[in-house]
Design a protein around this nucleic acid. Structure first.
Lengths: 187, 187
DNA sequence: TGTAAATAGTGATGTATGTCACAGCATCTT
DNA sequence: AAGATGCTGTGACATACATCACTATTTACA
């Protein structure tokens, strides 16, 4: 069976076999093909997803139809429209496959249930939420204080694999510049 | 004594008097004057702060000396350089008073201790970390997809009190535009 | 295998925003 | 009270980046 989740959780809290069974019983395995949607902007958000393999984009389409990428979610990432997921409201962004992708998904109810019966998992989720917050803040800082050129270099330095896996057009949407501008930057 | 913290926590999890005593025993009350630093860029970060009253700015000074404001922390906000706090490394940003400010502070050790002896507080911190993450993502989205004019309107709509409490120069640093540009925007 | 769609580069031009400079007030300090 | 310091607005000018248009390749797929 898939042990990616166990390995991932045990980087932060250790688990007995029974505890891990308890955890997996709250998740469902699901496979998607390239371009499939896990979440569609405007529709309800039922799940949070743990990426086992593949690649997703969390993306917002503005009124003019331009796409803005909030994040790329790869192996071992947790992703959803968190705002919508926790408040049970409609998605303001979409979550879509850039490659064939396998995930484990959990509902909000099961998430709460799991937290209630397995306190140590709350510590794990706290750690994840904290690093997510820190990561968003770093990205914010880089948007506020760095030029497109610098942001591009920072991104490739941090996630060199992205350069192979996604188009320049998508990288541009992530960096907050037009594809033409990105194309004119020197590597 | 100060009950702001209790009220704040009980918005999320309910507490007995004993539990609240346990919590307060992990915090220390501290007062600062306008312009005082709670955290200085480059120095170590010992505490996370809960703001009882007053106003703080979380700010990053880039190589050219320009300031970029990551957030304004007002009453009921938790603030620190989280990256540095959790990893016990040096601050990449400063936390400074814009008004005389009263806070409750907690060390990383006490934070972990409190989580260990009072599991329900972990749920509270998880909720806070989650909303912090969501808030950063919203801000990211607004930087990626909105003009300076729109971001200004969004900010004033969301935090009308800021307009009274901080200078246009600081609002500009928060919005990621020059003070001259902000000054030319129509309200 | 062939046709359509997606991707990437680049020139020409427009525009939002930055930078520099200066002036008028308001606020703080001694 | 006087001088220093900070805040705000505004003109002149510079620049990073967006937009539009076109072309050349590569990739998808029927």
């Amino acid at each position: 069976m898939h042990n990616e989740l166990r390995r991932h959780i045990e980087e932060i809290v250790s688990l007995t076999d029974d505890e891990y069974s308890l955890i997996t019983s709250h998740f469902t395995l699901q496979k998607f093909k390239k371009n499939d949607f896990l979440i569609r902007q405007g529709e309800s958000v039922k799940y949070t997803y743990f990426v086992i393999s593949g690649l997703l984009k969390l993306v917002y389409y503005d009124e003019s139809g331009k796409e803005h990428i909030l994040s790329f979610a790869m192996e071992d990432w947790w992703e959803t429209d968190y705002q919508a997921f926790y408040s049970t409201s409609d998605a303001t962004m979409s979550l879509q496959c850039l490659e064939n992708t396998t995930v484990l998904r959990i509902t909000l109810k099961d998430y709460h249930h799991l937290c209630a019966i397995l306190p140590k998992i709350v510590l794990f989720f706290l750690k994840k939420a904290t690093s997510g917050h820190v990561a968003s803040q770093q990205r914010l800082l880089s948007l506020l204080s760095s030029s497109a050129q610098d942001r591009y270099e920072q991104l490739l330095h941090r996630y060199p694999s992205l350069f192979q896996r996604v188009s320049k057009t998508l990288l541009a949407s992530y960096l907050g510049v037009s594809r033409e501008t990105l194309s004119r930057l020197t590597l």
